[in-house]
Design a protein around this nucleic acid. Sequence first.
RNA 1: GGGGACGUAGCUCAGUAGGAUAGAGCGGCCGCCUCCUAAGCGGCAGGUCGCAGGUUCGAAUCCUGCCGUCCCUACCA
Length: 648
Amino acid sequence: MFHEIEQRLQETFARCLEEKLDVRDVPVALEEPREASFGELALPVAFQLARRLRKAPRLIAQDLVAAVGAVEGVAALEIAGNGYVNVRFDRGYYARGLLAGSSAESRAPAGGKVIVEHTNINPNKAAHVGHLRNAILGDTLVRMLRASGRRVEVQNYIDNTGVQVADVVVGFHHLEKKTPAQVAELAARPKFDYLCWDLYARVSAHYKEHPESLKWRQQALHAIEAGEGELAEIAHTVANAIMLCHLGTMRRLGITYDVLPRESEILHLEFWATAFQLLKERGAIRYEESGKNAGCWVMPASAFGGGEEQDKVIVRSDGTVTYVGKDIAYQLWKFGLLGKDFYYRPLLTEADGHIVWVTSDKPGSETPPEFGRASEVYNVIDVRQSYLQEVVAAGLRALGYEEQAEKSIHFAYEMVALSLRAAAELGVELSEEDRKKGFVDVSGRKGLGEKADDLIDRLVERAFDEVSSRHPDVDEAERREVARQIAVGALRYFMLKFTRASVIAFDFQEALSFEGETGPYVQYAAVRARAILRKWAERGEKLPDFASILTREAMDRQLASEDFWQLLLAASKADVALARSIAGGEPAHVAKYAFQLAQAFNTFYHDYPVIHEKDPERRAFLLWMTTYFRDQLERTLSILGIPVPPYM
RNA sequence: GGGGACGUAGCUCAGUAGGAUAGAGCGGCCGCCUCCUAAGCGGCAGGUCGCAGGUUCGAAUCCUGCCGUCCCUACCA
């Protein structure tokens, strides 16, 4: 509704500018005034024209307003200050529009399929808080895009053949002296990812003390790549088991995937060979005869704006491909440009019936949906990979896929570090450098950091205590489920409230808080809205027929109250917030809006008892506001992936 | 050396396609539960938006320089 009026104003003013002033190149900007008393929208257009027309902005504004005349849904256009045009909505019209359900909801889904790749955790150890930021950011992006009508495919890339897995294989084989069968037995036990977490740290420490043992890593890598022998078998067991652990961790947060493309298939199906051919044919890479990169195939630095002497090696002099090369092949596949596809098999079925597929190197018996062939690709990867992501896009560009390079979006975010206090709580020794920085880097290699599942457990425990203190009479299993939902709300909100470019110095006190700007605060507002309506129903009352009682005149009467109008207006801006959030690539904006929406509802809740209202029209209005707030809160929370508990 | 991000209240952060009196949460202080759950609500205190110039009707926002912090810049994977 808000957006409709915005559009109408923009069109009307643009047309007026064109017809009356012959101005076409000035975009009609709309702002939300700082002061609510100025109206709902403001147009600074007169300022933009002042210079060109050599005329005082205020006079221009007056002429424009006179020329524009009446606009549907707008009660008044006022000149304010030096030349602002302030817009006052027709409140009754607006509210009736909301009551009827905005037609903006029914707009057709536009554009082709979007692929969002996120999580991408090395399958060699338990997930930690840093991984949570990636997955929550990615999953929320998916929900945002879907809410805006886009078709989205969610991918979680599994590097099951890399060094990280190889290192754990080394641990089992050389340090622990385990046979593949023994490893398989361990892998079947719970918390295998925790066991590997420690083992991985031990292997890293071992390398440090005995650098000569790094040859074990090379052996393991070769074995894994060849896919034969005990080492490969252990790698296979470890990667699969840990991958399932990660899926389990993410499932706790309501995060799931459509397909898991694996590095092993990219290898076995020779995606790289195909891409290599393309890159050579189209001159995207060149063979170096001499110089420091002699014998290598490189992408010239000029292709991706790299500095001088910064050509990027794609194929090493020994003929093996670097990661970027494989990433280019993979990115080509995502756009359906490789001319090759994976095979697939169903991996598991989620509780809601959703099937998660995994790639395979041979045909399966079941027919998968069509994967890949996207028109737009979001890679949710931390900011440190910016350079490599640039090279990948440059690869597409060099192949002539300008459009796809443009649509390859590196959805970058900053790291999660540990606050000094959190690091101290985890028993980390703080160096002078750490103290100066003010935070400590998470390091999987050192086994340093808070495991995702531990954090979720802590949150659930805290929430359980809170729930239990408020509802001691309720069945324990039910309290636990409510606690779980609150924990998810707290964690997801915490990870989303920061903008992407902000380093999160993870702090337990902040993350475990349920008060103030937190997920539970927003959940609580939704719970309160539901509670009012439940109480109403428990009295044996039915909801009034809003459409017939709340006529336009009735809405006008009720919304003459500035309080009500501001509350309704705030509640109606969910779509505006979503659109702005997608355009800006910033899920934090939706989170902020959810918080503001909750604040607005809490004000409403506090100031206006609904059920005890005596006047029938006023009561109907309050009940309608309650349902509207509830719907908007629930919708916004679902975009954030935050559940609404039955009570709190 | 080159590239990028950042510097806003005691703390953690919003706010930048230039706009009206710079916001929130936490922490601090003072209030509010015979009335739909106080995980709530109200109030007070707290800021030369790193510094200096420039652009203009107007700058936290754009440009330049400086100071400071972090990240990236391998034939490792």
